[in-house]
């Protein structure tokens, strides 16, 4: 019974292993650190923002603004680096402050005006996208030499695979995210909010601070994801990263986090990202399949996981009922 909490996570793990086995049996070349390195690099920006999304969904919310914030970050960086002599590191700091404040503001609106996160972050999505257009509608290349320096950093793995800087950043974000969720008060508060808001309030959880903190974290990670995306593409474009918020939500749900909040793990989201990456890699290796197959498979997986979650909840409700009846039937000997 105790393991029911881990069941969706284990299901994700099984899906991942199965998918990997299928991939390798069709294309043995996929079993290499080079493919693994590329998979992590290609999905680094998605992974980073998905960590923020995991916290948001664990708390029972949703953040639709992250894709737009990623685009805004890229556009902001490219324009600042093109038009001013500000060093990229300073620009990074500036944009992270902006996106964190943006997330915190959305969290504040959600809590103080008691608005549904869906609507507030939808507004945030339009706002961030609109501001990106305002800055520029062109795709602006980033040619700063510091960018090339960063792009050239990597760790060589055995088997000649490259673990690039942005892949490392993603892995660090996941590691920090896991510790934050499992080993800090903030993390427990996030689970508490997702479990039952009234109870959390009565038990003394600082709901305002936590709500604002969650969306600030998501904003910060969307900003970091935008920086990584600009390193990945060497450009800023206001039409970039459309729909990334949905990919992030998909990764979180496939990773076993309950959409209604309260149950799930950051590590599961990592597996969710890897599963999405595997499907993409498979399609690239195959060469004849349309890339839309990624979406189709992701769609099917999502359905599968939602059904699994529903099934688990139904089962646990039923066993709780049976337990009650069993204890009621017991003779009152104690």
């Amino acid at each position: 019974m105790k393991n029911s909490k881990y069941l969706p996570l284990m299901a994700t793990f099984v899906v991942f292993v199965l998918a990997y086995i299928i991939c390798i049996s069709v294309f043995p070349n996929m079993l290499s650190t080079r493919v693994a390195g590329n998979l992590l690099t290609d999905n680094a920006f998605l992974g980073i923002t998905a960590v923020g999304m995991t916290f948001v969904i664990l708390s029972g919310g949703i953040d639709l603004s992250v894709g737009s914030v990623i685009a805004f970050t890229g556009v902001f960086l490219s324009v600042v680096l093109r038009d001013t002599s500000i060093h990229p590191l300073v620009a990074f700091a500036m944009v992270l402050v902006l996106t964190t404040a943006f997330g915190a503001a959305m969290g504040g609106v959600i809590f103080f005006l008691d608005m549904p996160p869906f609507i507030v972050t939808l507004a945030g999505m339009f706002l961030a996208r609109g501001i990106s257009y305002l800055l520029t509608t062109d795709s602006v290349p980033i040619t700063h030499p510091f960018y090339s320096t960063l792009q050239d950093i990597f760790i060589r793995m055995p088997g000649n695979g490259r673990l690039t800087l942005i892949a490392i950043i993603m892995l660090v974000v996941f590691a920090v995210g896991i510790v934050l969720a499992q080993r800090t008060r903030f993390g427990t508060y996030v689970y508490a909010l997702g479990g039952n808001l009234t109870s959390a309030q009565l038990m003394g959880v600082p709901v305002a601070k936590t709500t604002i903190g969650i969306y600030a974290l998501s904003g910060f990670l969307a900003g970091l994801s935008g920086i990584v995306f600009s390193l990945y593409t060497s450009a800023g474009y206001s039409l970039a990263a459309v729909g990334v918020e949905l990919d992030a939500i998909a990764a979180v749900v496939i990773g076993g986090t309950l959409l209604t909040g309260g149950y799930g793990f950051v590590a599961g989201t990592f597996l969710g990202i890897c599963i999405q990456g595997l499907i993409q890699t498979y399609i690239v290796f195959d060469g004849t399949l349309s890339s839309w197959w990624t979406k189709i498979v992701i769609g099917l997986l999502l359905f599968g996981f939602i059904a699994l979650q529903r099934g688990l909840m139904w089962m646990s409700e039923r066993s709780a009922r049976n337990k009650r009846h069993a204890s009621a039937a017991q003779p009152s000997s104690a």
Partner: peptide
Amino acid sequence: VNLLTNLTVAENLFLGRQPKRFGLTDI
């Protein structure tokens, strides 16, 4: 019962006052 059924028994008892070690919750 106004507790959080998704958290562990221990977390429910100590929510908001978890013992800490090196800044992290000492589970």
